[in-house]
Design a protein around this nucleic acid. Sequence first.
DNA 1: CCCTGCAGTGCAACCAGGTTGCACTGCAGG
DNA 2: CCTGCAGTGCAACCTGGTTGCACTGCAGGG
Lengths: 145, 145
Amino acid sequence: MPNPPPNHDQATRLLQQRGASITPARVRVLQLLLAADAAMSHQALQQAASASGQRFDKVTLYRVLDWLVAQGLVHSVTGHDRVRRFSPMHAHATHAHFECNDCGRLFCLHGKLPLARPEIPAGFQPDRLDITVHGRCADCAASAH
Amino acid sequence: MPNPPPNHDQATRLLQQRGASITPARVRVLQLLLAADAAMSHQALQQAASASGQRFDKVTLYRVLDWLVAQGLVHSVTGHDRVRRFSPMHAHATHAHFECNDCGRLFCLHGKLPLARPEIPAGFQPDRLDITVHGRCADCAASAH
DNA sequence: CCCTGCAGTGCAACCAGGTTGCACTGCAGG
DNA sequence: CCTGCAGTGCAACCTGGTTGCACTGCAGGG
């Protein structure tokens, strides 16, 4: 590797910007999330971390993730398998997700969105809009052709 | 009450249309769902049923619900509290949901929708679109004003 | 230098939604 | 009457997630 650690730096920088204490668990989790192409479940994170030699307790992971979400650095999505998955919060106001029917993976879609809202009954106060597209991800579509 | 049971008839009729065996559990569950103004969790269903004198095992409920979903009579939504909630499937192709941040209840929105799709990366095969509006339901908004 | 306090971590027990395996019931058909 | 099968109930189980508590390491104050 020609240059310093990949998104380790970015992860550390993001944490520093928050003025928060920089612990190995936080750096590693954020780093993994930044490198991932799909949202990661707590379990995937634990495996990925321990595969690279850093073993964290699941409680530590949950707490780190809660903390990251509270800091606004990460957001969580619950798929229909009832498992929370996490991915780094990029700077788009509203964004959609894609959930694969076959492998269950969850991706963030970055394209811009149709911003029309559905009709809301009287008295309801809308706040945020979640859009999830279900279907087949590129990998599953390819392997099933 | 002037006329025969409320949506008991409707529930029975729907089941008959499917040519399926009509069991007390199926009728009662469908009846409760038809009467509800918000999507019901399995737990809420169990309580509601046993409050009206019909006690069902939770396994029975899960199976009845699975069956109803498979029949297309009911659909399930998973809120961010990771609990599945069920509501009768009406005849709208796409429809949105409203999830209350305060009480966690889930409502189906019946109005028509903006049908534009977000941009999908190459290779992905979209299939179905889920839209969930988060915010405060009428009750919670009123009691918090 | 020791004492205190506190954030982060790990371990173990726990909780709740959901599933599985199996035995029981009731009914239709031969 | 026997057989088969759908529906139901019970109990054990699985898993994602939470809670309580003890341990560690470090910063700040005497």
